[in-house]
Design a binder for these strands. Structure first.
Lengths: 235, 235
DNA sequence: CGAATTAGTACCCGCGGGATACTTATGTCA
DNA sequence: TGACATAAGTATCCCGCGGGTACTAATTCG
């Protein structure tokens, strides 16, 4: 079975050498509805106790960690993440598919527009109800969410999940999905205004009911430098 | 399409039979005067371009990362760190003593009372004027400081550097050393009060000039739970 | 006793976030 | 065509909290 074989090799083969190398695993999130979803791949190893796991592969010797992680993400999702950051190294004994002694985990995001996953060995799960994962992957998923949310004040993650032009309501919804909780409208806009994170365009949204919304764009570096980060976690 | 197939294709770059393992490096800080100091060890390899480097060792197969890091710290400083946390994995090509392809870095602290380093191959350097370090260690030092300071709101690092009983002035000084900047006295005490992080004892400091200071102790978990962390970075 | 020193507190001010309610601008439908 | 629904965007008030300043308190030293 072609699919089966392909899926099988998605997890690192059991290490045969005396010193097993390390794996690069990616926790890939995307906004889906009002929640975040995490990308899982079907466990191919028939000995695996769990049916799903996170995208993983061995690190190649000549790759940097970032490049390797992008490769793993692209292999699983079919597209490049629009934002990515290292979560850390995990090696504290929990079982890992493939038996890697050490795993370097990365958290990444992709926009919702590329959710067309035809591959039956890949699926998105709500972060609220993830499938049963191998122990180390379970730990890494929680750590990845933690990293994602603590980085939101400093990295423009929400913008990397939206088109170049967006309304402030869309931006706020994206922040709410990423942070997993509601934000206050007036405070949100005040914070954006204060940090000069966005600038208005001449475009207005025409579709839909209600008052049209003005489109904004992410403010270029030049106009943002020197500004302190917005502490959205305080809103 | 090809990329997606790669998602499940078996192309883990074949490891050489003798793949080098990863190293565990520790960035160990201690309060010294009004500044932090970092522990460095003399470069043993005569081919090393730099005279100093950070404590490092290969990871043993059967150790967890934490245990290995504690071992490295103990070997260099002679004592166990009182607080430690992982910084991350570093493997982006910078030169590393020993030639490790991957390094897992830990940040740790020890109280100032154990500064008696008789070993001439070990020395403390002010973080403001560190010695020339191998490239990867230079990067790791900055990352470790960053990790230390961002964790201060959530981990009782300052308390781990003080005796069981301390005055609020001593506590504030410790926070100032760790954060690298002055704090406002009234705000600092208000924040402590609000978070119920400390509780007064019946003891008073007898030594020294000026008004005696009341001794406090770190409040036990039971009395602190439910309280939100103190954002000392906002003070 | 008074000056110096350190600990601890009181007061005021201003900023910024939360809540609420309001205005504005569209679509929908009777 | 006008009332209503819907969504965007704003105004206003309140209050908590951090910063600045200056004050009081308790000790040592000369």
């Amino acid at each position: 079975m072609r699919d089966r074989d392909l899926a099988t090799s998605s997890s690192p083969a059991r290490a045969t050498s005396r010193r097993p190398p390390y794996s690069i695993d990616v926790i890939l999130f995307t906004p889906r509805g009002a929640q975040l979803a995490v990308l899982c791949v079907r466990a191919a190893d028939p000995r695996s106790r769990e049916r799903w796991q996170l995208p993983t592969d061995w690190a190649a010797g000549d790759e940097t960690l970032d490049v390797a992680a992008r490769r793993v993400a692209r292999a699983a999702a079919g597209v490049e993440p629009t934002w990515m950051e290292q979560v850390g190294a995990f090696a504290d004994g929990q079982r890992h598919p493939g038996g890697a002694t050490l795993t370097v985990a990365f958290v990444a995001v992709v926009p919702a527009t590329v959710l067309d996953v035809a591959n039956p060995d890949v699926a998105w799960f709500s972060v609220g109800e993830p499938p049963t994962l191998p122990p180390r992957h379970r730990v890494m998923l929680d750590a990845a969410l933690e990293t994602l949310r603590t980085r939101m004040d400093y990295a423009p993650i929400a913008f990397k999940l939206l088109p170049a032009m967006f309304t402030l309501s869309e931006l706020q919804q994206m922040y709410e999905i990423l942070l997993g909780r509601r934000l206050h409208k007036a405070s949100f806009r005040r914070a954006l205004q204060g940090a000069v994170l966005v600038e208005p365009t001449e475009e207005w949204r025409s579709e839909g009911r209600g008052r049209p919304a003005q489109f904004y764009r992410f403010a270029p570096r030049k106009r943002r430098q020197g500004r302190r980060p917005v502490r959205f976690d305080l809103l």
